[in-house]
Design a protein around this nucleic acid. Sequence first.
DNA 1: TTTTTATTTTACCAACTGGTCAAAGTAACG
DNA 2: CGTTACTTTGACCAGTTGGTAAAATAAAAA
Lengths: 206, 206
Amino acid sequence: MKGYKMGNGQSRIQKKNKDFIMKAALDIFSKYGFRGSKLDQIAKQSGLSKPNLLYYFPSKEAIHRELLSGLLENWLDPLRSLNSEGDPFEEVMGYVRRKLYLSKTLPKESRLFANEILQGAPIIKDVLKGELKYLVDEKTKIIQKWSDEGLILPIHPYHLIFSIWSLTQHYADFDTQIRAVLTNEKPFENASVYLETLFSRLLKPS
Amino acid sequence: MKGYKMGNGQSRIQKKNKDFIMKAALDIFSKYGFRGSKLDQIAKQSGLSKPNLLYYFPSKEAIHRELLSGLLENWLDPLRSLNSEGDPFEEVMGYVRRKLYLSKTLPKESRLFANEILQGAPIIKDVLKGELKYLVDEKTKIIQKWSDEGLILPIHPYHLIFSIWSLTQHYADFDTQIRAVLTNEKPFENASVYLETLFSRLLKPS
DNA sequence: TTTTTATTTTACCAACTGGTCAAAGTAACG
DNA sequence: CGTTACTTTGACCAGTTGGTAAAATAAAAA
């Protein structure tokens, strides 16, 4: 007999409600940051009562932590798959595309991350100094090699990474500003074309 | 007799304390956003008592508003001085330099702005859709003309502006992340060189 | 010096906040 | 059906929050 629990030990209703909560929490936290977000608001938006929220999660902080840690895997992955064996420009451009895709499909997650960084990364500082730094150190070496071998134009590899982060995330994080200026256009469509051009001119040997 | 009032109708002590408050408020608001910032915290950091704060400003919101409106002039100015009569590349690059200089010298202001945008720009949305949009519309026309005439490489002028915003502000807004990765380097020094290269390759006809 | 004006503090509020608890309600199983 | 395990609610609480009022203090003017 399976009982009413699912494989991971959660009932159907538990999974559904936890999902509601996480979705509402993402909405709120990504806008107002941790301290600016109120449990009442998250409760209301998720359609549950506040004590009911706290039946599923032990605290406000726990919800926030779970959101952030769920994010981090998604966030590091696109860089991980930059492959030293592939075509240099295509590898970098692939990273750009994956990153832009994330900003397009998960803009709230991007803003949640931005909020965390703006506050000085109190929760994920370890990951930044550890996993992220390690990953960036590794991948910049590859880029440096490509650059040295003339497979791409000479470039500061760390700042290349930063510019990829900045250019892609900007479309999610500053969405409000972009839409205030661009009233007709679809930002992400043209961003895709624009970034293709930008990185092509920046990296492709002529 | 001058009396103890200064030219602008504020006493010396009033000016000094308002300055303390604004400085402390900038510290706090730029980190935690409006809702995440507490008056007690601002009071403590400025060395005044909370009721004393509210003697100088009518409310928390008033402090925040004054900070933001003080910012906006600074923020729009660098784009204003992009001159259609000058050398195209140098004009754009001048804008990049001024913007990067702002991020370097006023990183907290940059983060305050970022926080406001992340929250959907509740306070400055009008300015974004009005003054900013007007200014961008105007300047992109100039860039488009340069592009059409072959004075710079063909480019999407709006996204060029966005990329300038994103690349320069990133060094202020994501400072924490950058310093977690770059432990030895001075980010802004190299950013300056890097952006020179980037925009040179992006815009200069070969 | 006295009077007037400006500044600061103390004590206080009502509303809100994150969180608890026990009781009531609802599913699922035997 | 009854029993058991899970879920939801309402009442509540202690600490915090933005803000007020009046008294006390300090500075300037007369």
